[in-house]
């Protein structure tokens, strides 16, 4: 029995290996980019909402849709606006309702509030069984309404 030492097709095999690794890295980079795009859109949306609510704390509906539109319209898409969850907290971390935020007795001039936006994000990477992570953004604002 003889073994033939043939190098034909070697370049193809090497090319396949490189293309495989390159594809994995590219897909991974795209998924990370998607995560960062969502986070950045949330950051911008929450900051806008906080600024708006600082001036007029009755505009919770506007703030909610602003954040969802920013996240939903992020450059890499994904329709994350619908799965977004929002929360308002006071300076000490207690959850408050939009009505309480707009109540001068609860939140008078100069009161600090926080908005937390959260969205579940799952990166799709081939051959990796990744779990869903929560992308989260916090920003603080201050009530500037003078009753």
């Amino acid at each position: 029995m003889t073994f033939q030492r043939n190098e034909r097709g070697q370049a193809t095999v090497e090319m396949l290996l490189v293309v495989l690794i390159l594809t994995l890295v590219s897909l991974g980079a795209f998924e990370i980019a998607r995560g960062y795009a969502v986070k950045q859109a949330m950051d911008v949306g929450v900051a806008k909402a906080v600024r708006g609510l600082s001036i007029d704390s009755s505009q919770w509906a506007w703030a909610d849709s602003t954040i969802r539109n920013e996240v939903g319209g992020n450059v890499l898409g994904g329709g994350y606006g619908a799965s977004l969850s929002l929360e308002i907290r006071d300076r000490w971390g207690n959850t408050i309702t939009p009505a309480q935020l707009n109540d001068p007795a609860t939140m008078p001039y100069g009161s600090v509030f926080w908005i937390r936006a959260r969205v579940p994000f799952l990166a799709h990477a081939p051959f990796l069984n990744l779990t869903t992570r929560q992308v989260e953004i916090w920003h603080s604002g201050v009530i500037q309404r003078w009753p």
Binding site: A29, I32, A33, Y36, K39, Q40, D43, V44, V46, A47, V50, R51, S54, Y109, G110, V112, I137, H139, S140, G141, V142, I143, Q144
Partner: peptide
């Protein structure tokens, strides 16, 4: 790529954090 994403994300956040701090300072 990771550095670029991280840097851009931190920069956007930092602008908003500085703005929020300035607003809170002026209000208080």
């Amino acid at each position: 790529l990771l550095d670029a994403y991280q840097w851009a994300s931190t920069r956007v956040w930092a602008y908003h954090a500085a703005e929020a701090a300035a607003e809170r300072g002026a209000t208080a």
